[in-house]
Nucleic acid binder design. Structure first.
Length: 423
DNA sequence: TCTGGGGTCCTAGGACCC
DNA sequence: TCTGGGGTCCTAGGACCC
């Protein structure tokens, strides 16, 4: 038996935890660079603001309707997520953190009163963190996801919890669920399922699994089995090691000069290196890409990428920046207004087991590099990111993101601690 | 003027191995 | 006219997730 705990409108809820006056008001959170809407409160959804809407298009409406708008504040969301996950880890024998706002629980061995248990979990998370959650429970992950969605929609006698086994008529419920609402099915497959006459979850459930496999492959076959109550997707305790690490950003302003791009790309490489070391990995190759805006119609679109292999596996920021810069110089073409760039680390291997080089040239000192990176990371962990950085990253730069509407990092910066006054 | 960032898995086909 | 059987690795493309 699985439970899926999902935080309601997570980013919007995080913004409200330390600003309770936003309770009940329509609220949206914007993507990096204040580009589009990536989270909406229920009130904002009711206004008809779609997910992913470019902000400049809804701005007039926003003003007229008193919409509250925030830049994304990942320091805050990440910290509140960690707290929620910690509470959940105490509530079940095994958990799987599925995303920043979702967690699967393995309910095996828990007392039978599952609904009562789940209601208590939801209350506890709300009381201890201020974050509202919904919980779906079922014998498979796919059904637990669905139960969660139905619970969120209020289709449950025990909000915010829905236990699949307590449904009076599961088949009729499935028949009311459009295929696109199933976990793992989006637009393309939805269209193809409908073309086969399978347009609701119950039709997929009744379809011959072999047929699903023929038309779509093993992924869809598993969805079919899971809808029938046959669990195919186990709880994953330890996340598998990363296969790639990407750091990319849209620029606050368009860039045309190589010098400016170089600083941006160096900063991305440095950040990617931090992530790499935090995971205990080394990269064996790096890819750098740049692109102009895909939405501009007045200038030709240009996008390109360069991939470079390393002499030997590395987690040294200096090496990463050097490679990224060489790659950039290969693909940079003057005359374009670049909108975005990124650095992708590839062929990751665990640090410490990498293949050495018999005749390194130029001679290098891996111990020295390792100590330097450890010191760099330690200082930046304690004193704040960017305290110590490479000169190539530049001090500021027009490429840095616009984030004009960001709330304070209430829980992760001393200066931003909220002050409570008694009156 | 203004449009996110970060990932995963699966499949088919080609090249190659013994 | 007829040409084995069993495998791996790599890449590109397509789909999906939050």
């Amino acid at each position: 038996m699985f439970a899926l705990v999902d935080c309601n409108n997570f980013y919007a809820s995080c913004e409200r935890v330390f600003a309770p006056r936003l309770e009940g008001r329509p609220l949206v959170v914007l993507s990096n660079n204040d580009g589009c809407v990536i989270a909406r409160s229920n009130e904002a959804k009711a206004l008809g603001i779609p997910m992913g809407a470019p902000y400049f298009k809804i701005e007039p409406l926003a003003r007229a309707q008193g919409l509250v708008v925030r830049s994304s504040n990942y320091a805050l969301y990440g910290d509140l997520s960690r707290r929620v996950m910690q509470i959940l880890a105490d509530c079940a024998p095994r958990t799987e953190i599925y995303s920043i706002d979702e967690c699967f629980l393995d309910l095996a061995g828990l007392p039978q009163e599952l609904t009562a248990q789940a209601l208590a979990i939801a209350r506890r998370v709300r009381q201890w963190t201020g974050i509202p959650v919904s919980i779906g429970m079922a014998p498979t992950k796919t059904l637990a996801k669905l139960a969660n969605r139905l619970a969120k929609q209020g289709q449950t006698p025990t909000p915010p919890v829905l236990e699949w086994g307590r449904l009076a008529d599961p088949a009729a419920t499935l028949a009311r669920v459009p295929v696109e609402d199933l976990w793992g099915i989006a637009g393309r497959w939805g269209g193809r399922l409908r073309a086969l006459g399978l347009d609701h979850a119950q039709a997929v459930c009744l379809a011959e699994p072999r047929r699903l496999r023929q038309h779509f492959g093993v992924v869809m076959e598993r969805i079919g089995w899971e809808l029938r109550g046959v669990s195919c997707l186990p709880l994953e305790r330890a996340p598998p090691p990363r296969q790639q690490i990407l750091t990319s950003r849209s620029f606050g302003e368009r860039l045309t000069e190589l010098t400016e791009l170089r600083a941006a790309v160096a900063a991305f490489a440095a950040r990617a290196g931090e992530k790499l070391r935090a995971q205990g990995l080394c990269a064996q190759a790096l890819s750098v890409f740049i692109q102009t805006s895909p939405f501009t119609t007045t200038a030709p679109y240009y996008a390109n990428a360069a991939t470079l292999g390393f002499e030997h596996p590395s987690q040294d920021t200096g090496t990463l920046i050097g490679c990224a810069t060489r790659g950039l110089e290969r693909i940079y073409r003057p005359g374009h207004a670049y909108q975005k760039a990124g650095v992708l680390l590839l062929d990751l291997v665990p640090a410490g087991v990498e293949q050495g080089t018999l005749f390194p040239y130029p001679p290098s000192d891996p111990q020295r590099s390792r100590r330097l990176m450890e010191t760099l990371d330690r200082i930046n962990r304690r004193q704040g990111r960017h305290t110590l950085r490479y000169g190539a990253e530049g001090m500021s730069g027009r490429w840095r993101m616009r984030q004009q509407l960001k709330s304070p990092a209430y829980t992760t910066r001393w200066e931003d601690l909220p002050i409570v006054r008694a009156s």
